[in-house]
């Protein structure tokens, strides 16, 4: 495949990861922080950016580790363990660096990092990229797109929940109950993007 073709595929995969194949709303990965941090738009934007950053970097790192360490050694089945430790190390490392050298960025983004170390959406994106056999560039687009998609979903959710705080929700549905129903409705809404690509 030539360069332009791959670049074009990267854009398509990126777009698809944001809308039609939104990792949160089609595979329901990363639900825990999605429900916990979606009460305020401000916090959800911070968490969203953290996810975009971590997901982009870790899918790329994991792609490199998979392609240049596991495949040559015939150890593909180790990918789960390897991906998890790479993600955990990376997040820890970034947190330390931010805290030390960029307190402003740490304050807006860094405090969310521990929340997403064990986020299954991050691991999920790395595993999907292997299953689907993406190339390096496409992986980059996929990781970035998945992060943006996740962020889009949580920010939309936070907006809805903020407005909903004015509404009278039946007692049994308050909190996570109504949030899950909304997540389901949002997932249905996102199916509408299917025809776009």
């Amino acid at each position: 495949m030539n360069w332009t073709g791959e670049l074009w595929q990267m854009l398509v995969v990126c777009f698809a990861a944001v809308f039609t194949g939104n990792i949160l709303l089609t595979t329901f990965l990363g639900m825990c922080p999605f429900l916990a941090v979606s009460r305020q738009v401000k916090a959800s934007v911070g968490l969203g950016f953290a996810v975009v950053f971590v997901m982009t970097c870790t899918t790329v790192l994991n792609w490199l580790a998979y392609r240049y360490v596991l495949v040559p050694l015939d150890l593909e089945f180790f990918r789960f363990i390897l991906f998890i430790i790479i993600i955990a190390t990376f997040v820890q490392f970034v947190e330390m660096v931010l805290e030390r050298y960029s307190p402003a960025l740490y304050q807006s983004l860094g405090i969310f990092l521990p929340l997403i170390t064990v986020n299954c959406a991050i691991l999920g994106a790395s595993l999907f990229m292997v299953i689907r056999g993406y190339t390096f560039l496409v992986t980059l687009g996929y990781g970035f797109g998945s992060g943006v998609g996740w962020m889009l979903a949580i920010v939309a959710m936070a907006g809805i929940r903020q407005n909903m705080s004015m509404e009278r929700v039946p007692k049994g549905l308050q909190g996570p109950g109504i949030a899950l129903i909304i997540a389901g409705l949002m997932a249905l809404g996102f199916i509408g993007f299917t025809g776009v690509l």
């Binding site: 580790a65 360490v69 050694l73 150890l75 180790f78 363990i81 390897l82 430790i85 790479i86 190390t89 820890q92 490392f93 330390m96 660096v97 805290e99 030390r100």
Partner: peptide, 26 residues
């Protein structure tokens, strides 16, 4: 044995990175 060795080596390498980072950065 080889695969256990490889994965342990990777784990140890990453842990070393963190230990060094903690020593100098934090």
């Amino acid at each position: 044995v080889f695969s256990v060795f490889v994965i342990s080596a990777i784990g140890a390498a990453l842990a070393t990175v963190l230990v060094i980072a903690e020593r100098y950065i934090t």
